[in-house]
């Protein structure tokens, strides 16, 4: 899922400093699961904003909503009847949701309430970790199911570099060396011959470097 975390409150307060009536909108998708932008976080953020503004003698009116998803037009449509009553939206969706909300409602500004960090997994309650960088051309079958692009600090396709020490990456003793993980896994799978294959120069055009990406499925299009 997409992992995010709440922005510092002072940053959000600065965005809405001149607003008196705002809409705080959460998303029930990924950001609910990683406790960054679901209904609970909408309540907490709204309450915090009200307290901060009350304290400054500058009260603010907030409507709290949480949509099924902010990345699908049909759910965004649900705000149509009331959004015009507000001066701004603080969206607790990922960057995609914030943008899609802004695309659909052009009259008022839409501000990000969270920072979108990565595509990752819940390692344990309260701990999330990156796994994929959406390069658009998966090679996990060659690397023991561990992605060198996401897991190696240098995204080396033919690692590890000389900075791998006792299973850790040179940048931080708390960061596992992605290539050590790949090596260990290939050994477990008795597929170490894969390690000696030179991974060819990558076509990054399937990734972000090819410009904003789009997928069109004619079989599904209306």
């Amino acid at each position: 899922m997409i992992i995010g975390e709440g922005k510092p409150i002072q940053e959000i307060l600065a965005m809405i400093a001149d607003k008196k009536k705002i809409l705080v909108v959460g998303c029930k998708g990924c950001v609910t699961v990683c406790s960054a932008g679901g209904q609970k976080e909408v309540e907490i953020l709204s309450s915090t904003i009200r307290l901060a503004r009350e304290k400054e003698d500058n009260p603010i009116e907030i409507r709290e909503e949480t949509l099924e998803r902010q990345c699908d037009p049909e759910y965004l449509e649900q705000m149509r009847s009331y959004i015009d009553d507000y001066e701004a939206v603080v969206s607790l969706a990922c960057g995609a949701g914030v943008q899609f909300t802004a695309e659909k409602y052009r009259r008022i500004p839409v501000y990000p309430g969270i920072n979108t960090n990565f595509i990752g997994v819940t390692v344990e309650q309260g701990v999330w970790s990156e796994r994929c960088q959406a390069c658009g051309s998966c090679i996990l079958h060659k690397t023991g199911g561990i992605c060198p692009i996401a897991r190696c600090s240098k995204s080396l396709l033919n690692g590890p570099c000389g900075g791998s020490s006792k299973g850790k990456c040179e940048i931080d003793p708390d960061v596992e060396c992605g290539w050590q993980l790949i090596y260990d896994r290939l050994r477990e799978l008795e597929s170490l011959e894969l390690f000696e294959e030179v991974v060819p120069i990558k076509d990054w055009s399937t990734g972000r470097d090819g410009g904003p990406r789009r997928i069109i499925r004619e079989d599904l299009k209306s």
């Binding site: 409150i9 907490i44 915090t48 307290l51 901060a52």
Partner: peptide, 8 residues
């Protein structure tokens, strides 16, 4: 932490 962050 929230209280401190908004000066309470």
């Amino acid at each position: 932490k929230i209280l401190s962050s908004i000066g309470l």
